[in-house]
Design a protein around this nucleic acid. Structure first.
Lengths: 143, 143
DNA sequence: CTAGTTGCAAATCATTTGCACTTGC
DNA sequence: GCAAGTGCAAATGATTTGCAACTAG
């Protein structure tokens, strides 16, 4: 199944690559850092080095299989590249991440780029705030 | 003049802080990294350590005087926080950075956050592309 | 005076790389 | 078999921190 994506990316099918793909699929709702993946592999008794994880993730990114994000903080997180494009909103309190897509924003971005004489290649849009749960938690603390 | 901003930020007025503020003002059209500032200081025969620059920039950021951006690449860049909010478009070829503001995008961001139950605190929007100059340079190379 | 600042060197953190050793095909 | 891939340890680059010396108020 995932062999295909590897093959079409011109990558040999190896244990580390399959395992990492599998972990990304199993956690498709979360955004994992290289360390996260490393820990999961260790727990599964897989003997795969951190360096390999970084190498594989970078290859996956180049192959268009995953995307890399730099949210608040110093570490990068990865997710399987979804069908449609989407952006992210991150809760500054609990770290929860939601995805969204907004055509109007996308259109305006193109318009803005054009106005400034740029050919738009890609973009990064990240909203930061407090999610509903954290807001109500704060509220009750105040009361 | 710049004494005020330091005072109101609760920071003592010191040579390193004044010099760094001055450099940021003098380069208000550019986005400088800590190293950039360090180099400029060296050239001005100022004896200020890199560590101090990082400390001062972090304090300035906390005080709301400057904003820190993570564009492509591994180093952070800083700019004096401008009056009005704006976002950035970065040329992937030459690194040129332009600023822009778009009310429609801002409004949609708020709407999206609300729909997802978030209270929006801030956001980061960066467009990446090729600027007019680089596009035409590429064009002529092809011809 | 004395708490806040600084410079320097050493420490940290995430990520990358060199290299001898596997492994997929 | 051989190029591609991997593990480990050491290297890197950006940023941070410990600490003794310094300076603004």
């Amino acid at each position: 199944m995932e062999d295909k994506s590897l093959r079409s990316a011109g990558l040999k099918i190896t244990v580390p690559r399959l395992k990492i793909l599998e972990i990304l699929e199993r956690n498709s709702t979360r955004h994992l850092s290289a360390e996260d993946i490393y820990r999961i592999l260790i727990e599964s008794n897989e003997d795969i080095g951190l360096a390999t994880i970084y190498r594989v993730l970078t290859q996956f990114e180049a192959a268009g299989l995953v995307s890399r994000h730099h949210f608040e903080g110093s570490t990068a997180v990865f997710e399987l590249k979804p069908e449609g494009h989407h952006d992210h909103i991150v809760c500054l309190e609990c770290g929860r991440i939601e995805e969204f897509a907004d055509d109007i924003i996308e259109d305006r971005q193109k318009a803005v780029a054009k106005r400034l004489g740029f050919v738009l290649r890609e973009h990064s849009l990240i909203l930061y705030g407090d999610c509903a749960q954290c807001v109500s938690r704060k509220q009750s603390k105040k009361a």
